[in-house]
């Protein structure tokens, strides 16, 4: 009986404060759509930035002469460095072939000897593909005997780091602002509902309703608002995704990936916003004004 009553009361706000409830659901949906678009933009931009980072290689050139024993020792020393995920040895002959592929000329046709030193390509681990880690790794590599020179695209990594940091900060600030807006809207709607039910609350108090019994319907209303806002946002995002994918065509649409968990995350965020918004109102209004 209690659960039936609480559910009935929880749903009654949709009837009593229809306009406020609808406004709140639509606004939550709008905020979540914006939040979702930001998340999608952030994820896809991060993916593109990471694909740039993946292309960043570090190369170490060995001092000549470099006998096999030295190459083996250097390889072992490189692999022992923290942040190095793997290595690939490039011999003098392989370097000459690469030169030919890249410049179209055979080095032996230009010079009497092969001046290209043997080298190692170094693959960095996922957490080390940033300017600071790469610089720290390069510093360690310098001390390995037999290494003559180390090169990597330091400037590109620094640029990526700087832009990523700014992008994360701006995205977080906008996301936070959107969440706060949605939270305040839910809170305000619940406050209106509480106000419209103040007589009911007073009567409940007088006939011995427990605090939880009085509060639970408002939590349910908040959660429902959030859930409906979340579902509406998911639907809108799905439509936007479908439309944009069709607009971009198959090749370009690869740059816009909306993972399925994004929809679940948006719906969950809606529910959490609804819960937090009602909790805020209940604490502010029922506890402080009505004295429960």
């Amino acid at each position: 009986m209690i659960i039936q009553y609480i559910m009935k009361e929880g749903l009654s706000g949709f009837r009593r404060t229809r306009l406020a409830m609808t406004t709140s659901i639509v606004t939550i949906a709008a905020a979540l759509v914006l939040l979702g678009l930001f998340a999608i933009t952030y994820m896809n931009t991060s993916r593109i930035v990471n694909s740039f980072r993946d292309r960043v290689e570090m190369e170490v050139f060995l001092a000549e002469p470099a006998p096999d024993s030295l190459c083996t020792a250097v390889d072992a020393a490189l692999r022992a460095v923290h942040g190095v995920a793997g290595t690939k040895f490039v011999s003098k002959d392989q370097a000459a072939l690469i030169f030919k592929e890249e410049f179209g000329e055979d080095i032996h046709g230009v010079l009497d000897f092969n001046p290209l030193p043997p080298s190692f390509k170094i693959y960095l681990s996922a957490g080390s593909k940033n300017a600071d880690s790469a610089a720290a790794i390069a510093l360690q590599l310098k001390h390995i005997p037999g290494i003559d020179d180390i090169i990597y695209r330091k400037t590109l990594l620094e640029l990526l780091d700087r832009r990523s940091r700014t992008f994360v900060l701006v995205s977080a600030a906008i996301g936070l602002a959107l969440c706060i807006t949605a939270l305040l809207l839910v809170s305000n709607t619940i406050r209106l509902i509480i106000y419209s039910k103040r007589q009911l609350i007073t009567t409940m108090k007088l006939v011995g309703a427990t605090r939880m019994f009085i509060r639970l319907p408002f939590f349910i209303e908040g959660i429902l608002q959030g859930a409906l806002g979340g579902m509406l946002a998911c639907l809108l995002l799905y439509l936007v995704d479908t439309y944009v994918t069709r607009l971009l065509g198959q090749d370009l649409s690869e740059f816009l990936l909306v993972p399925p968990f994004m929809y679940a995350a948006i719906a969950t965020t809606g529910i959490m916003l609804g819960f937090a918004g009602s909790a805020l109102s209940i604490r502010k209004f029922i506890t402080e004004k009505i004295g429960l």
């Binding site: 009986m1 209690i2 007589q199 009911l200 009567t203 409940m204 006939v207 011995g208 309703a209 019994f213």
Partner: peptide, 27 residues
């Protein structure tokens, strides 16, 4: 009086039992 305007006389009285979790038949 402090009656709930959107409920009938019966429902107003039943309300005091509903909040205690009484069964429908008993109410």
């Amino acid at each position: 009086f402090k009656l709930l305007e959107d409920r009938s006389a019966f429902e107003n009285v039943a309300f005091a039992l509903q909040v205690t979790g009484a069964k429908s038949a008993d109410i």
